[in-house]
Design a protein around this nucleic acid. Structure first.
Length: 493
RNA sequence: GGCGCGUUCGUCUAAUGGUUAGGACGUCAGGUUCUCAUCCUGGUAAUACGGGUUCGAUUCCCGUACGCGCUACCA
């Protein structure tokens, strides 16, 4: 028998920027579907109109696009930045499915699995306050549940404001079979008669999401673990309609350093901002995929495709994971260094002075700092001295340890003449050039330290920098000699 | 308060009814080196606690503690 085609979905609310936890949730759903050649859909859950943020859907799609996580069905964004919907199970924007949801709600009423409720906001708040005061469990007291259906229908037709609530069992229990957590049992009597259609006629998450998951033939519902406690209601809806249950998988959360639910208030959580800061999609994906799941191997580096092949729902951890930026930095450094030189240069170039027109010079500098960068932007600070017309030598001594000034002068003069005698072709190969200079130092009977330190500082005015050889090759003959002359002038002042 | 979920180095994690509890990031030390970075070598560091079951438990069970989540006409 052929296995059912796996269909998963990511269903965010358009209430703001996609955060890194959302990226991971998306990634898991995408990997699960793609590893078996199934479908990964993107659905927008905008049933709460009051929280709708214009542009959020576009932003969400754009971020996913930049990350290379693409749904093959549902909402997406085209090259003109326009929202589109692709696939046969649409619409994929929930507010456009309002009538479908209402029809389902009516069916539930007809089946006596839901009822109209006319309780006012005031009555509800008062009731809750009373319950809290007397230390009762809070929840709807079921006043309208006892209403005669015919009477309720009359009131609705008369235009009385109302909502629709689920008519949940009041005894017994229900067991959720979660792909990650196993069987979890809840008492029905502790579960509230949830509102499924609001005053404005819009469905709440509980109905909308289940109805859409069913209509879109979603086989695996992956979502954050905060949904686990409301899963009984969702099972109730599925069973009321006689629908086949999907696999539920409640993902552990990403947490702040203090282990609370990831929030904007603590650090940066917007996925887009990580991308903007120069974190590479492959680093973000590799890192995020391994946060809460791993293929049980002593390997850290995986491509997106490898991750898709290896992904396994049952190996997802149960506990929350902290987003450790230092490790992300390490991943980013790794992937940055793996880039072809041209691509690396393209990434780094925006962070080099735009008024420097010598592209080849810029490129040589970029290459010099390649292995030192976690982020492309870091090159600005590291390389700025190389673009300055002249250097300030007052901060770092040009002399080696406690050696005399005269020695530094002597060494710099010698270094200058060595460079002058060199033909440009020798400068093409750093290794070769380095050997030559070291040979010259040896011939003089000098030490590497007392010669190379003054040279390097003359060229950089930094206590830390790439080697003098690398600097000279990057500068070229003319600029190198100019720097040495200036250092000499400073010493002889 | 009620209900639910969770707990292995600082962090992300691996493993098993019997292991010197493994790897990675970080960190520390050493080597290479003119400095930095890279690279190499090595070190540091964990089964929350208390009971049980068992010859033996970090692993299975119970309890406690702690953390987190849910308890909306938000998702």
């Amino acid at each position: 028998m052929a296995q059912k085609r796996v269909r998963t979905r990511f269903a965010p609310s358009p209430t703001g920027q996609l955060h890194i936890g959302g990226v991971r949730t998306t990634l898991y759903a995408e990997m699960l579907a793609k590893q078996s050649g199934g479908d990964f859909l993107l659905r927008i859950e905008d049933t709460d109109q009051s929280r709708f943020v214009p542009g959020a859907t576009e932003s969400l799609c754009r971020t996913l696009k930049r990350l290379g996580i693409e749904p093959n069905e549902g909402v997406w964004i085209d090259d003109n930045d326009q929202i589109i919907q692709k696939g046969d199970s649409g619409p994929y924007i929930q507010s456009q499915r309002k009538e479908k949801h209402q029809a389902y709600a009516k069916q539930l009423i007809d089946m006596d699995k839901a009822y109209y409720c006319f309780c006012t906001e005031e009555r509800l708040t008062q009731m809750r306050q009373q319950q809290e005061l007397t230390h009762q469990p809070t929840g709807y007291d079921g006043l309208c549940r006892k209403l005669d259906p015919a009477e309720a229908k009359r009131r609705v037709e008369a235009g009385e404001p109302h909502v629709i609530r689920l008519k949940l069992p009041k005894e017994g229990n229900v067991t959720v079979d979660d792909a990650i957590r196993g069987k979890v049992t809840f008492d029905w009597k502790l579960i509230d008669d949830q509102v499924i259609i609001k005053h404005d006629g819009m469905a709440t998450y509980h109905l909308a999401s289940m109805a859409d998951d069913h209509d879109m033939q979603i086989t695996h519902v992956t979502r954050a673990e905060e949904w686990l406690p409301s899963t009984p209601k969702h099972i109730f809806i599925y069973q009321a309609f006689g629908w086949e249950l999907p696999v539920f998988a409640h993902l552990p959360q990403l947490v702040n350093a203090d282990r609370s639910k990831l929030s904007k208030r603590q650090g940066d959580v917007s996925a887009e901002s990580y991308l903007d800061k120069g974190y590479l999609p492959e680093a973000l994906i590799n890192f995020l995929a391994l946060l809460g799941w791993n293929p049980k191997a002593d390997q850290e580096i995986y491509t997106h495709d490898e991750l898709i092949k290896l992904f396994d729902l049952s190996k997802i951890n149960k506990s929350g994971a902290f987003f450790n930026q230092e490790k992300l930095d390490w991943f980013n450094n790794h992937y940055l260094r793996q880039k072809p030189a041209d691509e690396y240069f393209t990434l780094v170039q925006p962070y080099l002075p735009s008024d420097e027109k010598d592209l080849d010079f810029k490129r040589r500098i970029a290459l010099l700092f390649w292995e030192r960068l976690n982020l492309p932007s870091e090159i600005t600070g590291l390389s700025s001295f190389m673009f300055q017309a002249s250097l300030d030598y007052s901060n770092v001594p040009l002399t080696w340890k406690d050696h005399p000034k005269e020695e530094a002068v002597e060494r710099l003069k010698a270094a200058k003449s060595w460079i002058e005698q060199l033909d440009d072709s020798k400068l093409a190969d750093v290794k070769n050039f380095e050997e030559q200079i070291k040979e010259s130092i040896k011939n003089k009977g000098w030490g590497n330290g007392d010669t190379l330190w003054p040279l390097r500082v003359a060229l950089s005015a930094q206590d830390k920098s790439p080697s003098p050889f690398e600097l000279i090759v990057a500068y070229g003959k003319e600029r190198s000699i100019k720097r040495i002359d200036e250092a000499l002038a400073y010493l002889l002042k």
